[in-house]
Amino acid sequence: MIEIFNVTVHIGSRKVLDSVSLRIDKGEFVYLVGKTGAGKTTLLRLIYMDLFPQRGNVIIDRFSSSTIRRRQIPYLRRKVGVVFQDFKLLTDRNVYDNVAFALQVVGEHRREIKSRVLSVLTRVGLHHKRYHMPQSLSGGEQQRVVIARALVNEPFILLADEPTGNLDPEASSDILELLEDINRSGTAILMATHNYQLIRKFPHRTLMLEEGRLQELPLEEA
């Protein structure tokens, strides 16, 4: 569960978020919309605690932004999967190793890594391409690898920052179908996007950031 209380964030002299409050329950699917620079990425960074608010409090699972210690942050991040528009894959290793990497760096055992990586690659439909290098995959496939990497630690929420930003409409729909499938199995999704077509096609709760303030949009308006 995610709770954000009255959070204000300044970056430089600019107030990016202004008294924002938000609650996302277990297993929810939420869109976050707003113009470029409206603070969507800032809000996501607050959740994986890459950024701390000047005012207010962010509570993620059992961690609170006001009391968390630096060395606890990695443990929070294992419960929060993050997916970016620009993929951030390691081009010096294949699909399998890219996903396995997320488990290797948290010290998982080899046998456990193998079974979990193969299972998550099956889930995103890339089991057959596990020995391919990321550069040889299409944009949609690369994004699936990133999603697999974010999922392999079994997070309770997946944060997706414009995950379809670099994809064509068809690949975008495929990614959305995959995210809905993941959501149905209990993982909450918070997806920042400005692709309103996609929201209309796959309607869910939608929040809008505008001039630092957050407001809930009725389903039909999104």
Binding site: Y75, K88, A102, V105, V106
Partner: peptide, 17 residues
């Protein structure tokens, strides 16, 4: 730095990074 960023994102401790 990409590697370091990914390690941080997936929850690697500083020791591991």
């Amino acid at each position: 730095r990409n590697l370091i960023e990914i390690m941080r994102l997936v929850g690697a401790t500083n020791f591991f990074i």
